[in-house]
Write a protein that binds this DNA or RNA. Structure first.
Lengths: 129, 129
DNA sequence: ATATGTGCAAACCTTTTGCAGTCAG
DNA sequence: CTGACTGCAAAAGGTTTGCACATAT
């Protein structure tokens, strides 16, 4: 078991994510945190993002394009990902726990959860036409 | 526009995927195709997998653990991913197009589709306890 | 003939890790 | 004091790409 000591870097990363709703990448976190901690290393950013995601204080969002995104909002919710600009936007969609049961029909394993991402074009990209 | 010429390598890759239901990685495809084409390169495998996915003849499944998986079954369907062994299994779950409309409520972009992956433990990993 | 496909190898991008030193409890 | 955390740099893992040659049409 790991004892978890305080670290200013970790707090700053968490604070930063709470201040944003645009689901930054690890590199974006790194670039921004460096304004406060010029010597922080990318490795430390990754280690803390992993740790925070493991203990449930942030969410890690795996995307097909580019790197993973991180979310300071840990309330269960779904994401929209723009296929043009790759921006990740929160959706106002209630949790769909029931689809786990639908998926369990005729399946001989144990389904414990799901992720769902919605794709299309975001408002900005539509208007850029 | 690209003219698309026949290639034995590409056909072999497509055939291989059609013969499997376990959603192999690019590297698994490479290893197996090499039995028929000992000199094929990994680059060629990636190029053809991308091309086939682009023209809709195979599906590319992005996972959070390890590399992408590929599926010769292009019928719309959902996948279960085991959190222990990372195996990817087809689910017998009818298409849930309607959740796109649910997600569109209060959203100012255009939702064109979704992906959903279910997580948990597969039958084999449960019995390995 | 010529555009597309291939093999090879190098490059790329994101993420992880080993190490020696630093810091919190 | 001790284990957790850090910066650094190297390495890992998966994927893409530039090039010269081969092949399909």
């Amino acid at each position: 078991m790991q004892a978890l000591k305080y670290s200013r870097q970790r707090e700053a990363i968490k604070e930063f994510l709470l201040s944003r709703t645009d689901h930054p990448t690890a590199d974006t976190v790194y670039t921004n945190i460096r304004q406060e901690f010029p010597n922080i290393s990318l490795g430390t950013v990754y280690r803390n993002l992993s740790l925070l995601a493991d203990i449930g204080e942030i969410l890690k969002i795996s995307t097909s394009e580019g790197g993973d995104r991180f979310d300071g909002n840990t309330m269960p919710h779904y994401h929209f990902i723009c296929t043009k600009c790759n921006s990740v936007i929160d959706l106002d969609l209630k949790n769909m726990e029931h689809i786990n049961e639908l998926a369990s029909v005729n399946f001989n394993g144990k389904i414990e959860g799901h992720i769902a991402h919605f794709y299309g074009q975001c408002e900005k990209c539509i208007s850029k036409h």
